[in-house]
Design a protein around this nucleic acid. Structure first.
Lengths: 241, 241
DNA sequence: CGTTCGATTGATGTTCTTCAATATGCGTGG
DNA sequence: CCACGCATATTGAAGAACATCAATCGAACG
């Protein structure tokens, strides 16, 4: 079980310092490992949850479901992310969480997490910081959706995901696995699948961007970052160093 | 100073239960009261902050500033909100905060807040919960911006603000002060001022909505809520009851 | 009384959506 | 091994929502 948790600990250590005892406590959390199918619901909106979900493999998405059937994805979670750590202080979320690709996850009970938080202030602060980081990314998504054109939105999302993957040790910023569909990208960016498709194809010659077989490759990172107006400070990767 | 803090305590108590000692500790926080002008910067992006800001009067906005001058407002903060409580665990935010109207605010030092959090686990949880509530609202904003047309976006924002005002004891959902400009609304909704103006005027006959002299009145709440597809669960007002 | 900021209006252009059809890949069962 | 079905990707044409540019109006304020 320990090896499954190293990714999560690594993520926390990006933005917090934890004592050996705290690290030990993180690595010895227990949970249930589940296999996920694409589209599988992990958290249903407005339903009480009793565990947080650590992504082990695959991509998981948080989304807002509208009455008319439209949906907005508000986060991509990559392996090592404890999605819905929010539910520890607030176990009745209005959003939903679902697997965007096949993969595996570990469900860690709120009872365990609350005990950890109560006994270890440094872990409490690290968890709080983790949800604040998530909020910082979400604010940037809102800005991207509200104020950028399609090409810039896509470019920004790919830059962000590349950096997050690299920071998590899951590839390079210019080459990483992102096994989601164009419809998922559309739901994340507030666009239609048709327009996402056309925009990605326009990005290929401009930035050497390809997305085939669930793998993203970025031949010209600088061109993509320039188009996106990308500034990584919102990822808070250096905030506590 | 106590009376200035009752609004914040009231806000926390919407979603948390605190012991008399905890309440006492909240009410006896100390801080510096400042007057705000419209447009005044409270937090500059990518700059270290050493205090959180409690809104006493007026409206405060969190925003993302893009390189090309465009800006996206990612939160409206009303009196009683401790904006940037996020900065307690993460004092180098990528976003900015500015006064959207004249008003007053109280700056509470991080040192005091961290001490409070370290000594009082219930307050730590209440603060964490507060930032999670903010994230829930932000996720809904992202969905609104990404997936709703202009009229629906505006209607949703007015419904949300009305309910939050009412919950904070600052008016009724159908009548409350919102002293922001149409340009602010545009920046919050990912639209232009021109389009906001035209859309508001279209909402007047449909939902009896008026916005004059910084005051919003909603004659037909049900029509507005229907248009917005409004469901208040994301405000988490009943989550901990 | 002029200045400034915000609200309003008009005309025109463009990004993106919508609707529809077709293509492609991939797993599954015959 | 091939045929089939399903999900995803791709392409085209037409229309709608919103942006842009530009001007005017109105109220607050020094």
């Amino acid at each position: 079980m320990q090896s499954l948790l190293t990714g999560f600990l690594q993520r926390l250590l990006l933005r917090a310092s934890l004592s050996p005892e705290d690290r030990h406590a993180i690595l010895h959390m227990r949970g249930r490992v589940i296999d996920m199918q694409r589209g599988q619901e992990l958290v249903v909106p407005d339903t009480l949850v009793e565990y947080a979900t650590l992504v082990l493999d695959g991509i998981v998405g948080r989304y807002d479901q509208m009455a008319d059937g439209r949906r907005q994805i508000t986060a991509f979670h990559i392996p090592g992310d404890m999605c819905d750590l929010h539910s520890v202080p607030m176990p009745l979320p209005a959003w939903g969480i679902e697997a965007l690709s096949p993969g595996r996850a570990m469900q860690v009970s709120h009872a365990d997490l609350r005990r950890l938080v109560a006994e270890r202030p440094a872990i409490a602060m690290a968890f709080w910081r983790d949800t604040v980081t998530d909020a910082s990314i979400l604010a940037k998504w809102a800005a991207n959706i509200g104020r950028a054109h399609a090409a810039k939105r896509l470019a920004h999302l790919f830059c962000e995901t590349g950096l997050r993957m690299e920071a998590a040790g899951l590839g390079e910023r210019t080459r990483f696995a992102l096994p989601v569909t164009q419809a998922h990208l559309a739901d994340a960016l507030g666009l239609t699948t048709v327009h996402v498709n056309r925009t990605i194809m326009a990005l290929r010659p401009d930035c050497g961007l390809t997305m085939t077989g669930g793998e993203v490759r970025i031949a010209d990172w600088d061109a993509l970052a320039r188009l996106a107006g990308f500034d990584d400070s919102y990822l808070l990767l250096r905030a506590m160093r």
